[in-house]
Write a protein that binds this DNA or RNA. Structure first.
Length: 938
RNA sequence: GCCGGAGUGGCGGAAUUGGCAGACGCGACGGAUUCAAAAUCCGUUUCCCGUUCAGGGAGUGUGGGUUCGAGUCCCACCUCCGGUACCA
């Protein structure tokens, strides 16, 4: 690049890269980014804490993508800004490193996932460090480290050792439950569930139960428990698959057959927390869309369960409905194909039952996943069961059908069908010619086509002991619930969409569960002192192909088959020589990310997951916050799962006294997605970006006209940008500025390589403003220019306001304007340059340090104080105000900045041009908005 | 279908929450510099009419409304993006 004519000290890519390396080394050496914990010598209790965290990445082999740094640059700017205000800033980074890709790679190559993962981590760390992010690297964590997953396992054991006490609405240690049962404070009621003791004849005494029964009862109440689940099992891949990984009954990867089958899996009782997870959303400073998504995912639904007796047996069908008021319109019932009653039907078919059809239908439905069932949407299928039920309100007989539009996993897996007021029931009734009765009168003027599903007035709804005619929907609901409760026909009930969390995987590359089984199937915990249970090495990562699900860890036979003593079970629980089998499932990828924010606070603690005093300091409540991470930045794609799971773990730890705040992330911000331009042919197909002449908008090979569209970056479109290349060409400061200057942080926006040069030129202008390009020495003027000084104050004020709002694009625009003004005005004094470089430093920290150092100042911009501004300097003595006549700008006037409205009006009307336009008429009204505008109504 | 978010120049985007629409940047055009180019600097750049100047008109997805004044508020609609989807 450099030629004889290029000045020796021009700010170009080579210089940028040189100074960036230099300052990164200097910051690291000085440990500029170290956060101070309470208890450390330099700890300053008067400093505000600021815990600012990025969602940690999963380090993939492909390296960092330009989309990753968008949020990281943002969090870095505000962290640096807060540090310059003297705050104690905790800004850490780590690695979400267990997961599938490394394991898939291991299957193909035999390379241990740890090897690939660690190499990917090294790449990511090197790339991140190259951006000059101010992470406290001494607090770096990786979920795959034994010292980390030690505590992941410990938390799981906490859950296994706890139960949810609904009487005080919190989790408690299960030992306390045992003591309460032994002392008789709690007892087991008839149905086998726990109840507060109200001494009665039928109560079973806990102490009379045999050990096995006692254990089973306790196991049923643990927050982490073994439960039977229907899963997608792929024999060929040797693993269960998520619903999204199954397409048309085949695995997405490889197209192997998938069967639905029951499997004992570790579960988390997240449903116990449903109400709190919902309620506490209100106290969070989170994007509304994310809060809504979580609320919908939790899916609280108020209604009633109603009992419909069968015509010819003593049984009844329990249904859940949100519209008990429509019970008079229930003309048939529908069972999910998995409903337990169907087995009884097949065993003893009623007279009207076509056994073959029912068997076929149920069999077919069973092998289709929920996702497949839903794919068909409108086309309702079903079969008559032969059963008849009694509508308890009308007393009439109604047929019971079986159809897969009713899901076993929600409510009771059975519904009362009201085809008059439910779209799905209406479609089904039409298809199978079932009767439709209207029982809700729409309010006057309500528009609807087909069936009316809104609220209105009950009609046709009266029988012997119940009449709700004329009632509004809400009143009618309450009346039906009251009637049902009194007559034993049902009761009010709230159901949730949220299911318990399936927490085991048959994979290798995850945290082992700290638990073992004796021959009788009983589970025994590994004692806390024996943690971590270390993931054993395997020589072969290929899944076992089998119909009987077998996790990969089953291959480590020596590890699996062991003794209680070897595994670390407390000898008081089991004699050390007892043969035991280790749990071979592993935890899912979410586990490590559920609590990593806690570990950042105290990453090297080997006595506890976090020291209580440290926890209170970084995460406890303060004058301005109810506690939790002060700012958490990451993608909206984690709106539900990660953020919900982490909230659940946090609440569990809160109940058990390990954390002091009720929520983990007080303020959440989603950075927007980076898209890229792509090209589309007229037939809609996409053309790789390097096969298009962008200026002419034609495809090179064919000369065909193509249209520019915005698409996600993807390998196939060849529109992925590698950050390393951008840094090599412009430097990290330019990269940082570009990503922040593109637009609002939260907006998704297209990467446009051509635009980068704009901020690059800005940095070059900054450099030339302050440096002699020939000598490399600072050039400053002696006396400040008033206009420049005012511009500087305006700029500092603007940037100081914008950074806390994460409005970085406008902050940068303000800096550009200032530099343009300063250049026109002939330069800066060294004092002005010092202040400017400090404002610039959160955004472009390396060039800012270089300017400071060449000015001859000591220390770092990064640890200097943030410059102040004087409000008096923000305004000029006189203002130019636009004058509107009837809302259109017709002229301008000069007024003193402090002029009162009456004076402004006088000046306006005295203005020659305004008077001319008014043509001598006296205006009806003059509106003066101080400092803004004058509007005349003639 | 439902729930969010957004529609502003050739492009990315500004607009103190009702007060000069288009800040800032890219691109484009013109000029200076240069043997020439790159780089840099200066100027122009929403559109239309007028076109030296002056000036005039239209304009923030569409149609209505409120207001002295609307990109911003209200009503109806259109389009795009994200999420979700037989949840009874």
């Amino acid at each position: 690049m450099s030629t004889a004519t290029t000045p020796a000290h021009r700010y170009d890519a080579a210089l940028a890269n040189t100074i960036e390396d230099k300052w990164q080394a200097a910051w690291a050496k000085a440990k500029c980014w170290r956060a101070i914990n309470p208890g450390e010598a330099q700890f300053d209790p008067s400093a505000l804490r600021f815990f600012c965290m990025d969602m940690f990445p999963y380090p993939s082999g492909a390296g960092l993508h330009v989309g990753h740094p968008v949020g990281y640059v943002g969090s870095d700017i505000i962290s640096r800004f807060r540090r310059m205000h003297g705050d104690n800033v905790l800004h850490p980074m780590g690695w979400d490193a267990f997961g599938l890709p490394a394991e898939q790679y291991a299957i193909q190559t035999g390379v241990h996932p740890r090897t690939t993962t660690e190499s990917a981590i090294n790449t990511y760390r090197r790339q991140l460090q190259r951006f000059g992010f101010s992470y406290d690297w001494d607090r770096e964590i990786a979920t795959i480290d034994e010292s980390y997953y030690h505590w992941t396992q410990w938390i799981w054991l906490q859950a296994w050792s706890s139960w949810y006490d609904t009487t005080c609405d919190k989790a408690r240690p299960i030992d306390e439950l045992v003591r309460s049962l032994e002392s008789g404070k709690y007892c087991i009621d008839d149905s086998g569930s726990l109840a507060l003791r109200t001494p009665g004849e039928s109560d079973q005494s806990w102490n009379d139960l045999d050990a096995q029964t006692q254990r089973d009862l306790l196991d049923e109440h643990r927050l982490a428990y073994l439960g039977e689940q229907t899963v997608n099992w792929c024999p060929k891949l040797g693993t269960v698959l998520a619903n999204e990984e199954v397409i048309d009954g085949k695995s997405e990867r490889g197209g192997h057959p998938v069967v639905r089958r029951g499997l004992k899996q570790w579960m988390f009782r997240i449903t116990a927390y449903a109400q709190r997870l919902l309620d506490d959303l209100n106290g969070l400073d989170w994007p509304q869309s994310t809060r809504t998504q979580q609320a919908e995912w939790i899916g609280r639904s108020e209604g009633a369960e109603l009992y419909f007796p069968l015509a010819e047996s003593g049984d009844s069908i329990h249904v859940f409905t949100t519209r008990p008021d429509t019970i008079f319109g229930a003309t048939f019932m529908v069972l999910a194909p998995e409903h337990p009653l169907i087995d009884a039907v097949l065993a003893q078919p009623p007279s009207g039952c076509d056994v073959e059809s029912v068997r076929d239908y149920v069999e077919q439905a069973r092998n289709r996943s929920d996702v497949d069932r839903m794919a068909e949407q409108k086309d309702k299928t079903g079969v008559f069961s032969g059963l008849w039920a009694i509508n308890p309100a009308t007393g009439g007989s109604i047929p019971v059908w079986i159809a897969d539009y009713v899901l076993m996993g929600y409510g009771h897996g059975a519904i009362m069908a009201v085809p008059g007021h439910d779209d799905r029931d209406a479609a089904f009734a039409q298809r199978f010619e079932l009767p439709i009765v209207e029982v809700v009168q729409p309010p006057a003027g309500a528009e609807h086509d087909g069936c009316f599903t809104g609220t209105g007035t009950a009609i046709n709804s009266a029988s012997g002991d119940l009449s709700i005619n004329g009632m509004q929907t809400d009143e009618a609901k309450a009346a039906v619930i009251a009637w049902a409760s009194k007559g034993g026909h049902g009761r009010g009930l709230t159901t949730w969409r949220l299911r318990d969390w399936l927490f085991s995987r048959q994979r290798y590359w995850g945290e082992p569960f700290p638990i073992v089984f004796t021959r009788d199937g009983a589970a025994w915990p590994i004692s806390a002192a024996a943690l971590p249970v270390v993931l054993p090495d395997l020589s072969d990562y290929t899944p076992v192909e089998t119909d009987d699900p077998q996790p990969l860890l089953g291959k480590a036979t020596d590890w699996v088959e062991t003794t209680a003593g070897e595994a670390g079970v407390d000898p008081e629980l089991l004699p050390p020589d007892t043969p035991v089998r280790r749990e071979t499932n592993t935890m899912p990828g979410w586990a490590g990310s559920c609590w990593y924010y806690l570990r950042y606070c105290d990453p090297k603690n080997d006595k506890a997951l976090i020291d209580p005093e440290v926890e209170r300091y970084w995460l406890g409540s303060t004058e301005t916050s109810d506690g939790g991470v002060d700012l958490y930045i990451g993608g909206a794609e984690h709106a539900v799962l990660h953020l919900l799971y982490a909230r659940f773990w946090h609440k569990m730890l809160f109940d058990l006294g390990h954390v002091t705040s009720n929520e983990p992330f007080r303020t959440l911000f989603h950075q927007g997605m980076l898209t890229s331009y792509a090209w589309k042919r007229s037939d809609g197909s996409l053309v790789p970006v390097d096969e298009v002449d962008a200026d002419a908008q034609v495809e090179r090979a064919t000369g065909e006209q193509v249209e520019r569209i915005i698409a996600k970056m993807s390998k196939s479109l060849r529109n992925v940008v590698n950050p390393d290349e951008v840094i090599a060409e412009y430097g990290a400061d330019t990269f940082r500025l570009y990503e922040m200057y593109m637009g609002p942080l939260e907006a998704s926006k297209p990467w446009n390589t051509r635009d980068i040069v704009g901020v690059y030129r800005f940095l070059q202008r900054v450099w030339r403003l302050a440096m002699n390009e020939e000598s490399g020495e600072a050039v400053t003027i002696d006396a400040p220019v008033d206009e420049t000084e005012r511009a500087l104050h305006r700029m500092i004020a603007k940037v100081s306001e914008d950074i806390p709002k994460l409005a970085f694009n406008t902050a940068i625009a303000a800096m550009i304007e200032f530099v343009n003004t300063a250049t026109q005005q002939g330069g800066l004094t060294s004092d002005q340059l010092d202040r400017f470089s400090r404002v610039l430093s959160p955004f472009a920290p390396h060039i800012a340090e270089e300017l400071r150092s060449r000015l001859g100042l000591d220390g770092f911009c990064s640890t200097a104080s943030w410059p102040t501004w004087d409000d008096a300097m923000l305004q000029d003595d006189t203002l130019e105000l636009p004058v509107q006549i009837k809302g259109k700008v017709r002229g301008r006037i000069e007024v003193p900045a402090n002029a009162d409205p009456a004076t402004v009006e006088t000046i306006t009307l005295a203005d020659e041009r305004i008077a001319e336009l008014l043509n001598g008429a006296t205006p009806r009204k003059v509106i003066v908005v101080p400092g803004r505008i004058v509007n005349i109504i003639p």
